[in-house]
Design a protein around this nucleic acid. Sequence first.
DNA 1: CTGTTAGCGCGTTCAA
DNA 2: TTGAACGCGCTAACAG
Lengths: 334, 334
Amino acid sequence: MSVKIRDLAKQLNLSVATISKALTDSHEISPETKQRVFELAKKLNYTPNPYASSLRKRSSKTIAVVLPEVADSFFSLAINGIESVAREKGYHVLIYLTHESFEREKAILNEFKSGRVDGILISVSEETTSSDHIKEVSSSAVPVVFFDRVCEDVKTAKVITDDFESGYKATQHLAEQGCKKIIYLSVSADLSINKYRMEGYRKALKDYGIKEADTVYCGNNLDENYHTIKEVLKKKKRPDGIVASVEKLITPIYIACKELKLIIPGDIKLISFTNLQTALILDPPLSTITQPAFEMGKTAATILFKGIEKENFDLSKERIVIPSELAVRSSTRN
Amino acid sequence: MSVKIRDLAKQLNLSVATISKALTDSHEISPETKQRVFELAKKLNYTPNPYASSLRKRSSKTIAVVLPEVADSFFSLAINGIESVAREKGYHVLIYLTHESFEREKAILNEFKSGRVDGILISVSEETTSSDHIKEVSSSAVPVVFFDRVCEDVKTAKVITDDFESGYKATQHLAEQGCKKIIYLSVSADLSINKYRMEGYRKALKDYGIKEADTVYCGNNLDENYHTIKEVLKKKKRPDGIVASVEKLITPIYIACKELKLIIPGDIKLISFTNLQTALILDPPLSTITQPAFEMGKTAATILFKGIEKENFDLSKERIVIPSELAVRSSTRN
DNA sequence: CTGTTAGCGCGTTCAA
DNA sequence: TTGAACGCGCTAACAG
């Protein structure tokens, strides 16, 4: 086994309590003994047993990050942001993936009632309809911060982007380029982000007097999505504009268009929500709505730590909306 | 606080020991009492305190995953693989990012000497030259499995792709298309994957009698990489083939080519290591070497769990090479 | 300034 | 089949 406080105590002829205090730099220990303790600790490479400490202090210095998946560039970047502030604050990060399954999400959340983590960062799954499982842990004194995909009915902090505005801006961009039939591609009707983005889309359609609209729901499978999209594009009254509300729809859209020999942006104009670097180099070019994923991760984590560390910090008051960016890229060919 | 064994014991007029045994389904407890215990546990939503249990059992049911970053599609997919087998086996996953810093990697590894985790999955940083920090934890009885980016001198399990072969195949692909000057774009000379890929590249050059070669080292910044690549492409004796050994070089290459009005694959043929879905829809098309990232994550995790759970399982004997795939995509325009 | 004592919640003796 | 007692390693209260 590794070296423990007892070992240090014996070697220095001190009590374990003294060592413990010295190690936490307590003011009730003389500088000299502190010095001796530090030196021996370093020499023997002493590292405190985190679980003993957690048990005693009732705090684990650990947070949980619950995500649908890390396939997507948004969540990848967000993890980087979360991890960087966690490390800075001396916290450890447990990662859990729901794979968009509600059942799995419930099972995961249930494990947080036992004090494994001091706080939770969550972006709910596509299937999540009820939020009881979250309320339950939230009310059992473990702080929860929502992040991107939220449950509005849980009274706690939320860090989101301006989904309504970005849905509006995306649609507006297409409308201003002369699109007359703009469709909205989605993956889940229940998701908060989707609801707001779609409302923005509807508002823009209205403002620009566009009557022809349609919402198409896709799934999580590339092939199926490709087929779904292809069917839509084969219709007699084909859309001339597409708002892709999530990143994973880009590939099937491009494939379907190529297959059907539809030219972007000649026949169909396209805009997608994504943080992919390769959006820069797609040809035909892809206009995008980019979310500040890294920043969002950092912000959400920062708020969570406040909720954990500040005694009476009211998380339910926090609702941070971070603006997304519209990047218009026009063709060099047409 | 949450409900504990004591609470169950009181309500059932049993001792804590009996409850504990019943919950672990011990054979020395009668079926009837087990039944009663289970029922009450479920009713009160009892979840054992993981830290008390870890302290007592000297096992945390937790593994650490140490990665450079999750920017890249390879690591994103790998995390999914790792998490899925971890969950299946009832393990928790702590994630740590080195951000390609050796110092950070050492600091992280140092924390694993205290029994926080039962095992470690690691893909080393670009800066990692020595492996003492890994040997140290590995020899202190915590199993380590390398994964993609390995340290050859540490005697433990390694899960990798056929880097030599894929470097060879990539170069061969360009050579067979008639390239006469093929350059290799890299990010770090020290990385194991890079060494092997480059050896494959060199071997292919030799086999195809290509004399003109060059290796260009890039960094982690999109802009800088763009400039570096642009300079190379501006030379009088411009390369006519590029092997991009990591995903993040794709974007700067495309940008530089566009800027210089170099046509892919007319002027320059390109092949890159990547798992990006959007590689499918890049135009001009991008041929790729794809690593089975999800599978690798699963495999690495599976081996790690064997090392953790099987008493005398010799990790140092394990070296699993998973084949990557060459996907050739040709232009529809030229 | 330092030491003694008493748990944190759980699992494992050993005795009944 | 059950229970009492101890200890995992650490920290906090209270004495000295």
